[in-house]
Design a protein around this nucleic acid. Structure first.
Length: 229
DNA sequence: GCGACAG
DNA sequence: ATCTTGTCGC
């Protein structure tokens, strides 16, 4: 399948993305984070999903799926490369989240279908895109203070909020994935911050996927076992 | 034509 | 994304 066909698919699916708040909870019980990485020269795609309880933000479940990579990385077509592994990890979840943060863009994409939007449509769950780099659009310089923000604009429409989540760190690009408005997307991300550049859902997904120290400690002493003093 | 280009 | 230690700054 060539990029011209994929491009056409993106345009069709992008029209199905719901950009307003459309969920049944006042407050979600579970929020999850998803992250994708690659192994063996990119031959293997690894997706991780971390499920957190809200508002405590404690990690309650994590799943990792590894599958053979089906597509090369082409800017603007990332979702086609990542969604198969994400689906595999998603199906393994015992408890589905009310809201999902995806590492990558939402509608802040040339054809308005970043991986957060594409995956949100596939599994029909509210999603938010939390990206670390710009893909398209323009924005004014941000103030140095935590909380500083500027709208990411493209062709006359706001696609995301460029938001400084932590002092002296590059800003995040927070956008609607599916079924969540731009402003709510930022609100939920703000509510999931715990002092790091990334919100907890995405930060944990990354820690789980990379087997980071914080995750290793969690595996050794799961807080749920009540071992803490 | 030239530069940009999520993970 | 991934290959990888120490190092500079707050």
């Amino acid at each position: 399948m060539d990029t011209q066909e994929l491009r056409q698919q993106q345009i069709i699916k992008a029209a199905e993305v719901i950009r307003h708040d459309d969920y049944s909870f006042d407050q979600p019980a579970f929020i999850a984070g998803a992250d994708v990485g690659f192994e063996q020269e990119g031959e293997v795609t690894r997706a991780a999903i971390a499920l957190l309880r809200y508002p405590s933000l404690e990690l309650v479940e994590h799943r990792i799926a590894r599958i053979n990579t089906t597509m090369p990385y082409i800017p603007g077509f990332l979702s086609f490369r990542e969604y198969p592994a994400l689906l595999a990890a998603w199906e393994q979840l015992q408890q589905k989240p009310d809201l999902l943060f995806v590492d990558g863009h939402g509608i802040s994409h040339p054809r308005r279908l970043g991986v957060a939007s594409h995956f949100g449509l596939l599994v029909d769950v509210p999603t938010i895109g939390v990206a670390k780099k710009r893909l398209c659009g323009k924005f004014e310089p941000l103030g140095p203070e935590v909380g500083a923000k500027q709208p990411l604009m493209d062709k006359g429409e706001q696609l995301a909020w460029v938001w400084r989540s932590k002092m002296r760190c590059n800003p995040l690009f927070v956008a609607t994935g599916h079924r969540v408005s731009t402003d709510s997307a930022l609100m939920w991300v703000e509510r999931c911050m715990r002092g790091y550049r990334l919100p907890e859902p995405t930060r944990w997904a990354d820690a789980v996927a990379s087997n980071r120290p914080a995750f290793q400690r969690w595996q050794a002493l799961p807080p749920s076992l009540g071992i803490e003093e």
